[in-house]
Design a binder for these strands. Structure first.
Ligand SMILES: NC(=O)c1ccc[n+]([C@@H]2O[C@H](COP(=O)([O-])OP(=O)(O)OC[C@H]3O[C@@H](n4cnc5c(N)ncnc54)[C@H](O)[C@@H]3O)[C@@H](O)[C@H]2O)c1
Ligand SMILES: NC(=O)c1ccc[n+]([C@@H]2O[C@H](COP(=O)([O-])OP(=O)(O)OC[C@H]3O[C@@H](n4cnc5c(N)ncnc54)[C@H](O)[C@@H]3O)[C@@H](O)[C@H]2O)c1
Lengths: 213, 213
DNA sequence: ATACTATTGTGAAATGATTCACAGCGTTAT
DNA sequence: ATAACGCTGTGAATCATTTCACAATAGTAT
């Protein structure tokens, strides 16, 4: 593969896509890199660079066609083919995520939840059934699930990851604050909220000190 | 300031700190960059680079003293001075976060929550009282709050951010999937879970295609 | 003591991401 | 028509981050 697209670019394309959806609804027909950059909080040059990845088809002095661009990015994300997601761990954060994603993106849906707690198993939250852990392999295969969200305690996270990998999962979003080991052919996204908050606290203090100078 | 420490390094230091805490508890006295790198999922060279920022005091063939290093990083994060955090929006994700951070880090605590919903106001969740929005300025000043977590709907996020900034907040962690505009002296961390999941789904599919080659 | 080994700390090189800057080109005005 | 404008697409430059590679060094064995 000659030019691989970086994860940063992919993340920004997702943001552009969401913003373009808004512009589309409010009837805006064209948009300039400058305007998209402003609302996305990036530079115009970066918008243009990123849009090259999806074959940026803008016109000078008219900018980009909102509908066309929106559809190009959707196509880039493969909206034609559905990605099914499993959620492991229906605790506080698991339930919040399930509620949040319910019915949001048609091509990207949480289709099954799993937990070891027998009180949670067999309940249906937001149109999604919770299965016992031993059903994991069977359901992943049946429902063609390719992405897993890990929302279990730290102590269980690596074991759950191993199980997911063993059943052929190709991407994992992990909320447990522990670095997971997965094979290189599985894409891993760590969402470490503790670390993020600690980083914010650190730089917040830095700013204060700089002002004092 | 000659050498500013990057946000990436700060985030990794937070991870090292947490891992070192574990090693400390289990009585490990020294650790090598290689071992810390393994559990943190980074390279040994990166660990050593990062530790230079906190004045890395390792010894050849003995490695780093776990207790000493742990305390150095804690000091780097300023554990002597408490950082007080406000949470705006006590919905699904707000409550999950409140439950999660309750009593976890002594020097970094959510001390007040805010919501416009009168049903939520005045309740106490996990030892944290929920105040009405109009009390924001007063409580921020009283409790010396310097960091805000935004967990309100997209439509209200920018307005809440502006209010926080107006009351002197210095760092914001934003869960609403919309890029916020804040002045450059306020540190902003976007936690965009939708975008993260979309990125995972994209690269998961990529991996599949590469395997097919 | 002395030699040997394994690991740190860190310049220097490599890699990756962002920004600059401008040629080329629709669009609009005249 | 033609000129003038302002924006896109992109090569090149800059900036940031990671990795390499090795001299310096503390511990260990002989
Ligand atoms: N709540 C938050 O805001 C938050 C923030 C950051 C990180 N996290 C992390 O997310 C994870 C979950 O947090 P939470 O607050 O939802 O915790 P929780 O205790 O409310 O939920 C954990 C769930 O996982 C289930 N579980 C435990 N072991 C399991 C296993 N082996 N297999 C399957 N399910 C299992 C439990 O039954 C429970 O339902 C933790 O690792 C936590 O550190 C949570
Ligand atoms: N739940 C998730 O897993 C999840 C994931 C990613 C992002 N988010 C984002 O986090 C935010 C909150 O999500 P949620 O699921 O908790 O939603 P929610 O509707 O459950 O909670 C929102 C809360 O904010 C309060 N609120 C609304 N307007 C307000 C205002 N102007 N000032 C103060 N409080 C106000 C509401 O009363 C409510 O309690 C949303 O922007 C959502 O997109 C949530």
């Amino acid at each position: 593969m000659p030019n691989r697209i970086s994860d940063k670019t992919v993340a920004r394309l997702s943001i552009y896509s969401r913003l373009l959806g808004g512009f589309r609804q409010q009837g805006k027909e064209t948009i300039h890199s400058h305007d998209l950059a402003l609302v996305a909080g990036v530079t115009p040059a970066q918008v243009r660079r990123d849009l090259m990845s999806v074959g940026g088809m803008g016109s000078p002095s008219k900018g980009y066609d909102v509908t066309e661009l929106s559809e190009s990015i959707e196509a880039f994300f493969g909206s034609q083919q559905r990605v099914n997601v499993a959620l492991i761990g229906l605790g506080n954060i698991g339930r919040a995520i399930l509620a949040y994603f319910h019915g949001r993106r048609p091509h990207l849906a949480i289709v099954a939840a799993f937990d070891i707690d027998s009180h949670r198993v067999d309940c249906v939250h937001n149109g999604c059934r919770c299965y016992p852990m031993h059903a994991l392999g069977e359901i992943i295969e049946q429902q063609k699930i390719s992405v897993g969200i890990i929302a279990v305690p730290v102590s269980a996270a690596q074991e759950v990851a191993d199980t997911l990998v063993a059943h052929g999962i190709e991407g994992i979003m992990n909320f447990a604050p522990v670095p997971l080991r997965v094979p290189p052919n599985v894409y891993l996204e760590q969402v470490d909220i503790t670390t993020s908050l600690e980083t914010v606290a650190y730089f917040a203090r830095q700013h204060t000190q700089e002002e004092r100078r």
